[in-house]
Amino acid sequence: MTKLGRLYSMFDSVQLPDNLPYTQVSKWELQFLYLVGRHHLTGRDRIVELGSGGGGSTYALAMGLQENPAFDEKKGRLHAYDFFRVGKGTFATEKFFSAGHKPEDDNSFLNDFRARLEPFLPFLEIHAGDLWQTSDPDDTSPVEFLHIDIAKTARVFQCVSERFLTRMQPGSVVLHQDFAGPRLPWLHYSTGALLPYIEIAGPPIRSTLAFEVTQPIPADVLKRISEDDFTVDEKLALMTAVQDRVDRDHTGGIPFKSVLELAKAYVAHYDGQHKRAWSIAKTLRDDEYLSRTRADHFEQLKKAYDAEPKVSTMTRLKKLVGKK
């Protein structure tokens, strides 16, 4: 069992406040964040949360840190990154505002976030804005813990991989909160590329995959991840390697082998190979979980396939004849 794996047996011992800030993270993921903060981290290196949202996940992690005797609030820091506003490209909800909706003249919920996290402000550093602007490209300080709930686009994941994954060392912990998202395949094939150098903690905690770095990650591997330097076939093979390690989440509710199979369709889709994407996706329509939760994904892939110009058999024959 991994060092992180021992935390799974402690879920029932966690008592989080009933009035946690609004969050889109499940109770199990909140409990795991608390357990990591309380029983695993030290604060000697950077503790980073990318995508703090309304503050529920930040609160659970900070509460664990505050109760951790190994964590020194005077020296340790929890770094919280987010746009802290609603609007196009932020993937934020108006529920992150204390009132439950955006004021007419302000799209920022930063003050609401500060108020909710008031007990932890002495060791909380808030970085508000576009991650490309709020993160330091020259910062090479080691990262002890990285919670990634911000990589909703390939552009943002490039920043995450360039400026944060490169600072992971043996013992560093990564939590991918969106691992159940088929539209975010970069999370899956990048994990596949990292498999020789990490140890997965155990079954995903709902949509979160947790792993610990066990060996130094070669610079060329990190470079390929940050530059997305993989062919489509390489990406699919890397995702298959992850499927060989990950099955259902710890509650038994999310079938990750199927989720990653649908994510493979999005690898082809983003590459413009819509026929290939639909050939992968259509075989998954009978999957109970995917048909219930990802109907819009199938519609999107089918629509792209239908819109792609079709070449008739006769046209293909004429082209072949013309080549002779």
Results as ranks from 00 to 15, higher is better:
F298Q: 11
P119N: 12
D247N: 14
I217S: 03
A99R: 15
G87N: 12
L187H: 10
W132C: 05
D287L: 13
L7T: 03
P309K: 02
L20T: 14
S279I: 07
D136C: 13
V173M: 03
K282D: 11
F113Y: 15
Q243K: 12
W28M: 11
D72I: 05
Y59V: 00
V311C: 08
T153S: 15
E288S: 09
E212D: 14
A281T: 12
V143T: 12
D12T: 08
A201F: 06
D228C: 07
L41C: 06
R116V: 01
H79W: 15
R155H: 10
N107Y: 06
H176K: 01
M314V: 11
A295H: 13
Y22Q: 06
S108E: 06
M1F: 12
A268I: 02
D178Q: 10
K95V: 10
W132Q: 13
A295S: 14
F145I: 02
T58C: 11
A92M: 06
H79Q: 09
D233Q: 15
E118K: 11
G51D: 00
P142D: 13
L146D: 03
H39R: 05
Y289N: 01
Q31A: 11
K302G: 00
D228T: 04
E67D: 15
A219T: 13
W186Q: 03
E73A: 02
A277E: 00
R276H: 03
S26R: 08
Q24L: 04
N111K: 14
M63E: 11
L209R: 00
H40A: 12
D45N: 08
L184K: 02
T2L: 07
R163Y: 02
F298T: 03
R206P: 02
L317A: 08
G5E: 12
F298C: 06
I126D: 01
L110S: 05
V86Y: 12
K323T: 15
K257A: 11
S161P: 09
G43N: 07
G53I: 01
D45E: 14
E125R: 09
L61Q: 03
A295F: 06
E288A: 13
T140S: 09
H250L: 11
A210C: 11
F32G: 00
P122K: 14
K264Q: 08
R46M: 05
W132E: 15
L131N: 00
L195Y: 04
K318C: 14
V259I: 07
K319E: 14
K302E: 15
E73V: 07
P203V: 05
I126M: 10
R292A: 14
F120E: 10
R114L: 13
L284E: 02
I217P: 05
D247C: 10
A154S: 14
T23K: 06
K275V: 05
E144K: 11
A151W: 05
L7K: 06
T153N: 11
F97D: 01
S312C: 07
Y305T: 00
D18S: 14
R46I: 05
S141Q: 15
P204W: 02
K27F: 13
S141I: 09
G272W: 11
A295W: 08
R116C: 03
F71E: 00
I150S: 05
P69V: 07
H147T: 11
L146A: 04
E67Q: 15
T23P: 04
A180T: 01
H250G: 01
K95Q: 10
G171D: 05
